[in-house]
């Protein structure tokens, strides 16, 4: 949500924008001021700034979100193996503590910036901005931001990313989209991970997970994969390459318009 395009004006508050509604003095001598700004205004502005950094260097930014242990880092390792000869990749890792995930990524020969949030349960646009300044954006095609494992808070914080990818591992409940609608509504792509375990799990139905996502009126595609067993990865890689292509194409068209 932003404060410039009017998307913050809803049926609940639009009457205030009528003449005389914006700023008025009440009978008791007090002044009432209509603001209509997001409570996350500061973060949203920083996210817009991050997006400008990405656009300038035509870098695609993907925000990965899930519960802890859904396989975000394993997915990144497998993705790097498939894409590192073709694209220039970097990873921003968010965790409360440790450099463990960044070390796993660096072991693949890829730059990784670890953000340790202390007790904060999500990344915000300011933390990502600080990390961006440690990277040479001009030498990158794609940045993965691995958010803090949490299905609640990260959904509300725009980081400046182009796409949100939400992972749901089959060891969790297939009703997670119904339980965490804010998160799954934000997904541009849902990945069902660890699908190699499906034969031993009788309580996770991928169709049910898709059904709950559909109930959120979210048309995001769903891909089933296992990063460690290398199954279903080709659909994910294909999706990523489409994003990179269309992003670079958009960036070039945009540059021409401004030339």
């Amino acid at each position: 949500m932003c404060d410039t395009c009017g998307c913050n004006v809803t049926t609940g508050n639009k009457h205030l924008l009528k003449p005389g509604g914006k700023l008025s003095r009440t009978a008791d001598g007090q002044q009432s001021i209509t603001v209509l700004k997001s409570l996350l205004n500061e973060n949203d502005q920083q996210a817009g700034h991050n997006r400008e950094h990405f656009e300038k260097y035509k870098v695609l930014a993907i925000n990965l979100m899930s519960s802890p242990g859904a396989g975000k880092t394993a997915l990144l390792e497998a993705t790097i193996d498939q894409l590192k000869d073709k694209y220039r990749i970097a990873v921003i890792e968010g965790d409360l503590e440790t450099e463990n995930d960044a070390k796993r990524i660096r072991a693949k020969g890829i730059a990784a910036i670890q953000i340790t949030t202390g007790s904060a349960c999500h990344l915000d646009a300011h933390m990502v901005h600080d990390a961006l300044h440690q990277l040479d954006l001009g030498s990158l095609d794609i940045i993965f931001i691995e958010n803090v494992g949490n299905l609640v808070c990260p959904a509300s914080f725009d980081l400046g990313q182009h796409q949100n990818v939400v992972l749901l591992s089959v060891t969790e409940g297939d009703d997670k989209p119904a339980k965490y609608p804010v998160m799954f509504r934000a997904a541009d792509l849902m990945l069902l991970t660890k699908t190699d375990l499906l034969p031993v799990l009788d309580d996770f139905d991928p169709q049910q997970a898709r059904h709950y996502l559909h109930n959120l009126a979210n048309p995001a595609p769903v891909i089933e994969l296992s990063a460690t067993k290398n199954s279903g990865l080709s659909s994910w890689i294909e999706w990523l390459e489409q994003q990179i292509d269309s992003h670079q194409h958009t960036a070039i068209t945009h540059a021409h318009k401004h030339a």
Partner: peptide
């Protein structure tokens, strides 16, 4: 599923009253 959300995702500072 082709819907438009009219309200429900707001997190807005709507207005303030000053003395």
């Amino acid at each position: 599923a082709s819907i438009q959300l009219l309200s429900g995702d707001e997190m807005l500072l709507h207005s303030i009253k000053l003395n």
